[in-house]
Amino acid sequence: MKAILTDITKCIGCNQCVIACKNTYNLPSEIPRHWQTGDGLSARNWTTVIRKPDNHFIRKQCRHCQEPACATACPVAALHKTPEGPVVYDSHKCLGCRYCMMACPYGIPRYDWDQPIPYVRKCIMCYPRIKEGRQPACTEACPTQATIFGERDELVAEAKRRLKENPDKYINKIYGLHEVGGVNVLYISDIDLDCLTMGRDLQEYPLPKTTSAAMNSVPFVFVGMGAFMTGLHWIIKRRMKLQNEKENGGANNG
């Protein structure tokens, strides 16, 4: 499983990652629009650097969850989790329901609101490059190694090593290690990273679990309801028939 580790203490906010991303995917430049959120992500900016006080810079991008809510939500499997780690998007399948955008706990996917033929847009962790054996454009461009690419296990070990070496410098937490079932874009930081999660504390359970109980019971409800209704109909019909016979019989006797 490939992953990205971003060390907030090392980021100098130079935006090289953003530029590299835009050059790789030929994304046009973006201007402020009324449907954007404040963080700078948009259909044309798949990663962004959020400025925080005291020269802190937080790079925001898709977290590539290990059990992605967006892929579970998508009714046509346009979004899916690849074995290498990235969650990728197939625009040929998409029908534009935007359920993925509603489902994402980080609020990452963006939409081409100004296009007559719109698609969902988000970071794909440079899946084509990973398949070629290269690293994503953003981590390659980073001049300070603030954001690095590698195997998830190795990056977690590296993050733990840094936390252990500088316990005073960092908040003792690897952001994304366990939340929503673990994600593939990890952060270590000296400031709180609330701004990455729509302001709510994320629990450890993976989001696909929330619907699986309901979805698993679908066949049983379907068959059960059919059997119940057929049975009910049969019983009621039989009762009415008996009652009719009784009434008719009584009338005959009388």
């Binding site: 998508c74 046509v76 998409c94 329901c97 935007r98 979805m215």
Partner: peptide, 22 residues
């Protein structure tokens, strides 16, 4: 829907974990 002409995709591309699919 952003791409309403693709609505028939639900018949072809199955994703049975999705409540919306159901």
């Amino acid at each position: 829907l952003g791409l309403p002409w693709n609505i028939w995709h639900m018949i072809v591309f199955w994703q049975h974990h999705s409540p919306l699919f159901e």
